[in-house]
Design a protein around this nucleic acid. Structure first.
Length: 322
DNA sequence: CATTCGTGAAGACGAAT
DNA sequence: ATTCGATTTCACGAATG
């Protein structure tokens, strides 16, 4: 018989509620993973939910920040002050509440008022650092900004890193892992997504975390967030390396040509992209009669001379065919 | 002399199990 | 978690210029 089943009370069902409603999003598609473009309207950015690529940062406008915030809790924000940025845990809009029991003129308050203030502070504190999550964000975003600056990464990469970290946080990827590791991984991933990659070795140098931990965090994050990041195209390193090595524009162009044919021969698959790019530059400089040693190129690309040699030989081989 | 080239042993990594 | 194959690195000596 169909008797009434005793339903368990839905006490904690809000835990895993997804905020995004795919239907209400803009009709764009993500160029990276050909998936659906999904808005992340809380920050005024259009980002793909599958790979986290920020398609259009600050899609709204560049004018005064008069946007109407529908979010009830947050619409108490001040309308003036520093610009909103993703890189502060509360988007840079906080005001601080004094802790002394004095009024604006420095007079001590009556004890009744003191207790009222204490309650206010309590809520203020709860709002500001709702939980450990917010504090994580604050610290992580600071680290991201610091490292990005040390690496000379442009703003889009920094913003993307912030978004990625937020997502990692929202998906509960942090517990049991170090904030620093995740923050570094976010930046590494973001730099690659934005077409301004840095080698893992370079990223490691400005991070407080060991390479292995960063790599693990990156892998984990890439998997859980469904990031679809192709292996770095060696071509993307050429400009960077050419600049630090100060080779001629001519040689740089030649290096790109070499890379082009190398890619057609699938020479790059499975190889260290930085090594190949470095070898292309070495070869190009050599052919242009510019003095540049394997050691120098290796230093610029953070690969060993041996690797330069090997890739360099490979390049000459495929080049000989044409 | 500095640089390049080649090699074997050893380590690190990704994929498969 | 371990194993396996490919790649990279290290250390060295030899060749080249």
């Amino acid at each position: 018989m169909t008797e009434r089943t005793i339903e368990t009370t839905p006490t904690a069902d809000a835990a895993t509620t997804q905020e995004h409603d795919p239907e209400q999003s803009m009709p764009e598609t993500c160029p990276e993973c050909d998936g659906r473009g999904i808005t992340d309207d809380e920050h005024g950015e259009v980002a793909c939910e599958d790979c986290g690529l920020v398609l259009d940062a600050d899609a709204i406008d560049h004018g005064p920040e008069w946007r109407a915030f529908t979010d009830r809790q947050k619409d108490d924000r001040s309308r003036v002050g520093a610009p909103i940025t993703n890189l502060m845990h509360d988007n840079g809009l906080s005001a601080t509440m004094g802790w002394q029991n004095k009024d604006a003129h420095g007079n001590t308050l009556a004890s009744k008022k003191q207790r009222r203030l204490a309650r206010l502070r309590k809520w203020d504190r709860r709002y500001r650092t709702k939980d450990a999550t917010e504090r994580n964000l604050k610290q992580a975003l600071g680290e991201i900004e610091r490292m990005a600056s040390a690496l000379g990464l442009p703003t889009p990469a920094r913003e993307t890193a912030g978004v990625l970290y937020r997502r990692a946080l929202e998906e509960g990827l942090l517990p049991g892992r170090s904030i620093e590791g995740m923050a570094t991984a976010s930046l590494y991933a973001a730099a690659r997504q934005q077409g301004t990659p840095r080698t893992l070795t370079d990223v490691t140098k400005v991070s407080r975390v060991e390479k292995l931990r960063i790599q693990r965090a990156y892998r984990y994050m890439s998997k859980e967030l469904r990031l679809q990041i192709e292996p770095t195209d060696p071509m993307q390193y050429i400009g960077q390396f050419a600049s630090t090595l100060a080779v001629s524009a001519e040689a740089e162009h030649l290096a790109r040509d070499l890379m082009e044919t190398a890619k057609e021969e699938a020479l790059h698959s499975g190889k260290n992209p930085a090594g190949l790019a470095a070898a292309a530059l070495y070869a190009a400089a050599y052919l242009s009669n510019e003095e540049i040693t394997q050691a120098e190129v290796g230093e610029a690309a953070q690969v060993s001379e041996v690797t330069i040699r090997n890739r360099y030989q490979d390049l000459l081989e495929v080049q000989a065919e044409y």
